[in-house]
Amino acid sequence: MDKHEFNNEKTQFGFWVYLMTDLLMFAALFATFAVLRKNTFGGPSGRDLFNLQFALTETLILLTSSFTCGLGIIFAQKKKVKQTVIFFGITFLLGISFLGMEIYEFSHLITDGNSPQRSAFLSSFFTLVGTHGLHITSGLLWMIILFIQIFRKGLTDSNLRKLTLLSIFWHFLDIVWIFIFTIVYLMGAVL
């Protein structure tokens, strides 16, 4: 292992530590949601509000984007700029459509009077899902910045390292969403 590779591993470990602390924050939000999910204060519960097919579509979009982002990294390691940009471009478009669906769902809920102020259940729902949405937004911004850097400098070692970190971040967000899909949407429909 040369010095360069060693530094890359250290960078990845540092990023992993950040992701794990982020995971702790999500765990706290999940715990809050799990505790407050029945406190609807006479308002609608998850069963009344959520459309399972809509949530499934969101899940499949995010899962596919996680997959294309992984393919992008393989081409980036082979220094194939064109394919890298294509696959990360697909990831970006899927991420944007996921975010669009989430914003649509939120605005729909709020215009129907089911805003975060409606009940403790809705407050915790908006906080948990909204925090995930904010992460997706920052991931998309990060992707735009990396696109600009790749167009200007090509797939340099530093850009490859940043792309790798971005892909880890993106897979991480998909993993968090699996639990949002299961605990918020699927369990909300059953219980």
Partner: peptide, 12 residues
């Protein structure tokens, strides 16, 4: 379904 989610976590 919680088990399935955990399985998917491990897979990913």
């Amino acid at each position: 379904i919680i088990g399935i989610a955990i399985l998917q976590l491990i897979v990913q």
